[in-house]
Design a protein around this nucleic acid. Structure first.
Length: 283
DNA sequence: AGCCAGGTCTTCG
DNA sequence: CGAAGACATGGC
């Protein structure tokens, strides 16, 4: 067996469980005393040991996962900025979730995944994406076990609506199929990287099945645009219950949060989303 | 059993 | 414009 690379990082601002379970990624699962994470055709095994969070991966993937987990960024500063806002629920959220990091995920995977996510629950989203990978993705070997890469566009583009319905996509089947076809026909979402966030979102919303919420998630988790603030059912609850908000249009709610939080909006959104669900679960 | 899930599209005032 | 319904499916 080939030797693995190891990334060791202080766990105070890098909590593996919280980072993975806060709803930004769907391709991971518990394994032994840690988690296996899959991105593109790469795998990592993540676990805690003493004061450290540790990532094991193939040597050639080390830089990829270092960037994937956003380990270049100073989350002490981000959390500190959040505390300085004095917004109570955000302060509470940061205390509980300061180990969350915003991942740098593959743009294509993020786009497909968040189209699947619409009006859907997280366990089922995970299941559908897993089935998609098992059905069409290349086999990957990692630590003596087999996993499946996210499928290529070529594979995705030849499947019919029937296949997508059979794996449980329901009415989202056509969204996924048409996206795959248009990407095979030359739509290049990597090129959007040069656009400013508002133009990036316009381009994403142009796609069939992509609305403002999905566009915000793709901008944040795929393009690392922290000046976006996805508003879903949970965040809408935060807005009403904790900010006493009265707006109804989610687009306007998103704009309102961005006007409050600026460049850090996306980070704060994750803390709030994480915290609201944490509270709800422990009721 | 029935409500809800990291919403979007279509249609109708 | 904004509001209201339709949409598939299964988790809880």
């Amino acid at each position: 067996m080939k030797e693995l690379a190891k990334i060791v990082f202080n766990k105070e601002f890098f909590n593996i469980k919280d980072t993975l379970e806060c709803g930004q990624i769907f391709r991971f699962f518990k394994c032994d005393n840690g988690f296996v994470v899959i991105s593109r055709d790469k795998c990592a095994f993540c676990y805690e040991q003493d004061d450290s969070s540790i990532i094991e991966c193939k040597i050639e993937d080390k830089e990829y996962f270092y960037h994937f987990f956003d380990l270049d960024r100073d989350y002490f500063c981000i959390c500190n900025d959040a505390l300085k806002t004095g917004v109570k629920i955000l302060v509470d959220a940061v205390e509980k979730g300061k180990g969350i990091r915003i991942l740098n995920q593959d743009k294509t995977e993020t786009l497909f995944s968040f189209i699947v996510s619409q009006n859907n629950n997280i366990p089922r989203i995970k299941k559908i994406i897993k089935t998609l990978a098992i059905s069409l993705g290349e086999v990957i070997d990692f630590k003596g076990k087999k996993y499946h890469a996210f499928p290529t566009i070529d594979k995705l583009a030849v499947m019919g609506e029937k296949f997508y319905k059979e794996i449980g996509l329901g009415y989202r089947a056509e969204y996924i199929r048409r996206l795959a076809v248009s990407m095979k026909d030359g739509l290049d979402i990597e090129k959007f990287s040069t656009l400013k966030t508002s133009d990036l979102k316009k381009q994403l919303i142009n796609m069939y099945g992509v609305g403002p919420k999905v566009a915000d998630c793709v901008a944040l988790f795929g393009y690392h645009r922290s000046d976006s603030f996805p508003v879903d059912t949970w965040i809408e609850k935060v807005y009403r219950e904790d900010f006493n908000g009265t707006l109804n249009d989610r687009n306007k709610i998103s704009q309102w949060f961005c006007s409050q939080f600026g460049e850090n909006s996306g980070y704060y959104q994750q803390y709030l989303f994480f915290y609201k669900r944490l509270i709800e679960k422990s009721l």
